[in-house]
Simulated assay, not measured.
Amino acid sequence: MKRLAVGLMTTPEYIEWWGRRINDNIPKPSQGDSQPIEKHLRVVPSELEIIRQDFERRNSELEKKIGQ
C-alpha cells in the first residue's frame, strides 16, 4: 500500500497570522503607568559593610566611655 506524504502548506499570510496569534497572548506593558526601575530597587549592604558599620558603632561607644 502506498502512502502519500503531504507537507504543510504555509503561506506568508498564515505565518504572519500565527505569529500575531501567539504574541497576542502576551500582555504588553502600558506606557502610561511605566515607572523607573530604580523605584523598585533598594540598596542592600554587603556583609563586610554591615560588619564595618557595627565596628564603627561599637568603637564610638567605647570612645564615649573612655572619655567619661
Score class of each variant (00 low, 15 high):
residue 1 M to D: 12
residue 1 M to A: 14
residue 1 M to V: 12
residue 2 K to E: 15
residue 2 K to D: 14
residue 2 K to I: 14
residue 3 R to L: 05
residue 3 R to F: 03
residue 4 L to H: 12
residue 4 L to D: 04
residue 5 A to F: 14
residue 5 A to P: 13
residue 7 G to W: 14
residue 7 G to R: 11
residue 8 L to F: 10
residue 8 L to D: 09
residue 9 M to T: 07
residue 9 M to P: 09
residue 9 M to K: 08
residue 9 M to A: 13
residue 10 T to Y: 13
residue 11 T to I: 03
residue 12 P to R: 06
residue 12 P to W: 11
residue 12 P to M: 09
residue 13 E to S: 13
residue 14 Y to D: 15
residue 14 Y to N: 15
residue 15 I to R: 05
residue 15 I to A: 13
residue 16 E to A: 14
residue 17 W to M: 13
residue 17 W to H: 12
residue 18 W to N: 11
residue 19 G to P: 03
residue 19 G to R: 06
residue 19 G to N: 14
residue 19 G to K: 02
residue 19 G to Y: 10
residue 22 I to C: 07
residue 22 I to W: 02
residue 23 N to L: 12
residue 23 N to V: 07
residue 24 D to K: 13
residue 25 N to A: 13
residue 26 I to Q: 04
residue 26 I to S: 05
residue 26 I to D: 02
residue 26 I to Y: 12
residue 27 P to V: 06
residue 27 P to H: 00
residue 28 K to F: 09
residue 28 K to V: 05
residue 29 P to W: 01
residue 30 S to Q: 04
residue 30 S to R: 09
residue 30 S to F: 06
residue 31 Q to H: 08
residue 31 Q to T: 12
residue 32 G to S: 02
residue 32 G to N: 01
residue 34 S to M: 08
residue 34 S to F: 10
residue 35 Q to T: 11
residue 35 Q to K: 10
residue 35 Q to I: 09
residue 36 P to E: 09
residue 37 I to W: 02
residue 38 E to P: 01
residue 39 K to Q: 14
residue 40 H to L: 07
residue 40 H to R: 12
residue 41 L to P: 00
residue 41 L to Y: 08
residue 42 R to G: 13
residue 43 V to F: 14
residue 44 V to G: 01
residue 45 P to L: 04
residue 46 S to E: 01
residue 47 E to D: 07
residue 47 E to T: 05
residue 48 L to E: 11
residue 48 L to D: 09
residue 48 L to W: 09
residue 48 L to T: 05
residue 48 L to I: 04
residue 49 E to S: 04
residue 49 E to W: 08
residue 49 E to C: 01
residue 49 E to R: 05
residue 49 E to P: 02
residue 50 I to H: 02
residue 50 I to N: 02
residue 50 I to W: 05
residue 51 I to F: 07
residue 51 I to R: 06
residue 52 R to Q: 07
residue 52 R to M: 02
residue 53 Q to P: 00
residue 53 Q to R: 13
residue 53 Q to F: 05
residue 53 Q to G: 07
residue 54 D to F: 08
residue 54 D to K: 07
residue 54 D to M: 08
residue 54 D to T: 06
residue 55 F to T: 01
residue 56 E to R: 10
residue 56 E to V: 11
residue 56 E to A: 05
residue 56 E to F: 11
residue 56 E to H: 03
residue 57 R to Y: 02
residue 58 R to M: 08
residue 58 R to E: 03
residue 58 R to T: 00
residue 58 R to S: 06
residue 58 R to Q: 10
residue 60 S to V: 00
residue 61 E to I: 00
residue 61 E to Y: 01
residue 63 E to Q: 10
residue 63 E to P: 00
residue 63 E to T: 08
residue 63 E to F: 00
residue 63 E to R: 06
residue 64 K to I: 12
residue 64 K to Y: 11
residue 64 K to N: 09
residue 64 K to Q: 11
residue 64 K to S: 07
residue 65 K to D: 15
residue 65 K to W: 15
residue 65 K to I: 15
residue 66 I to L: 11
residue 67 G to N: 15
residue 67 G to M: 07
residue 67 G to W: 02
residue 67 G to E: 10
residue 68 Q to G: 04
residue 68 Q to H: 02
residue 68 Q to F: 03
